[in-house]
């Protein structure tokens, strides 16, 4: 029921995202623009300019927003299960910042890197972002005392320290960057879907899909992990393999997302919480529902960021916080009141 409701909401948000902008396009014409290339005639007709705006600018952006939102939310779900910590999300524990720092470094030092690694920046940046995210998770695990002895406060303190370090690193890179590079680095620092095109969208979906499939397939095992690693092992779960795969795929998805959308906080932290407050911690529901809600929240935030003070575009991270935080607080308050009765 919840999944159906979220799916319906997602469709509404996607249509809204496609419809609203500098040029408003009614839903009928959106449909027409999407199906006209397939030779299907509808009662509505999209003008060439509308079709161009939709197919080349707006649709890739909405598509990227939905995929990135799902990836960020799932990254939160997986990290929280792995650390058994409701505050562990890729942003808070430094994974996103590590990925952003690596992506920014890759951009600033692109000419030098190109001499060593003959790869296009299109590939190099997401690979660097993945490596940066993975390295940060490993560092957090080590600083927090290693697997099995992980302490919640250590995880958070390590995350805070690594976030600060990555922030300082990005600041330093901005000092030595040229104008074009500085724009790129600033892009990662604040989050933006403005670089969306179909190639980017497809790349992010390719990098995020394994995480989604993993979350769905191993949801019951993630449930067992919440009991503690010892208990999970006694239930027959190959705990070490599960954790390694979860970290790898989360870094892949978050690294890929950060490489193309920049740092968008809050989604990974709050979306899983909202779903948990509604349905409980069962990952069989939590994984698909969080992916759906994440893919609702981000395109919605993007619509607001594009239109709130148009033609100026607000950072999308600011909008996700403004939407999510009050909603989250209301849910928390409601739960507290229910428990007090």
């Amino acid at each position: 029921m919840l999944l159906l409701l979220l799916a319906a909401l997602l469709i509404m948000v996607l249509i809204t995202g496609l419809s609203i902008g500098a040029m408003t396009i009614p839903p009928g014409r959106i449909l027409a623009a999407l199906v006209q290339p397939l030779g299907i005639d509808l009662p509505w007709t999209a003008e060439a300019q509308e079709a161009a705006v939709l197919l080349q600018i707006r649709a890739p952006r909405v598509f990227l927003g939905a995929i990135a939102g799902a990836a960020l939310a799932l990254g939160g779900v997986l990290m929280q299960a792995l650390f058994r910590n409701p505050l562990a999300d890729p942003t808070l524990i430094g994974v996103s910042a590590g990925a952003a720092l690596a992506a920014a470094a890759c951009t600033v030092f692109a000419p030098a890197i190109a001499l060593i690694i003959p790869l296009s920046p299109v590939w190099l940046v997401p690979i660097a972002a993945f490596a940066g995210g993975w390295f940060t998770v490993m560092l957090v695990l080590q600083l927090a005392g290693g697997y099995g002895r992980m302490r919640v406060e250590q995880v958070l303190l390590a995350g805070i320290a690594l976030n600060a370090l990555a922030g300082a690193g990005i600041g330093l890179l901005m000092l030595i960057a040229n104008d074009a590079q500085m724009r790129d680095v600033a892009f990662w620092s604040f989050g933006n879907l403005g670089r969306a095109d179909w190639h980017v969208g497809i790349m992010v979906i390719l990098l995020s899909l394994p995480l989604f499939l993993f979350g769905l397939r191993f949801a019951p095992w993630l449930n067992a992990l919440l009991l503690g690693e010892g208990e999970a092992a006694m239930l027959g779960i190959p705990v070490e393999r599960l954790k390694r795969a979860a970290i790898l795929l989360t870094c892949l998805a978050i690294g890929g997302t950060v490489a193309f959308t920049g740092l968008i906080g809050f989604v990974g932290l709050v979306v899983p919480h909202i779903i948990r407050l509604i349905t409980g911690p069962d990952h069989r529901t939590l994984v698909p529902a969080s992916a759906l809600l994440g893919s609702i929240v981000l395109p919605l935030a993007d619509v607001i960021s594009r239109t709130a003070v148009a033609p100026v575009e607000l950072p999308i991270g600011l909008i996700t916080a403004l939407i999510g935080a009050p909603f989250f607080l209301v849910l928390l308050l409601g739960r507290r009141n229910r428990e007090a009765i």
Partner: peptide
């Protein structure tokens, strides 16, 4: 092994609280 060996540990975290029935159902995971 997990179909023939079970543990009830002393301290089990409740950071993400399941309902009692959901928790007992985890016993069928093996």
């Amino acid at each position: 092994l997990s179909r023939k060996r079970a543990l009830v540990a002393q301290h089990i975290p409740v950071t993400f609280p399941f309902r009692a029935h959901e928790l007992a159902l985890l016993g069928r995971l093996p």
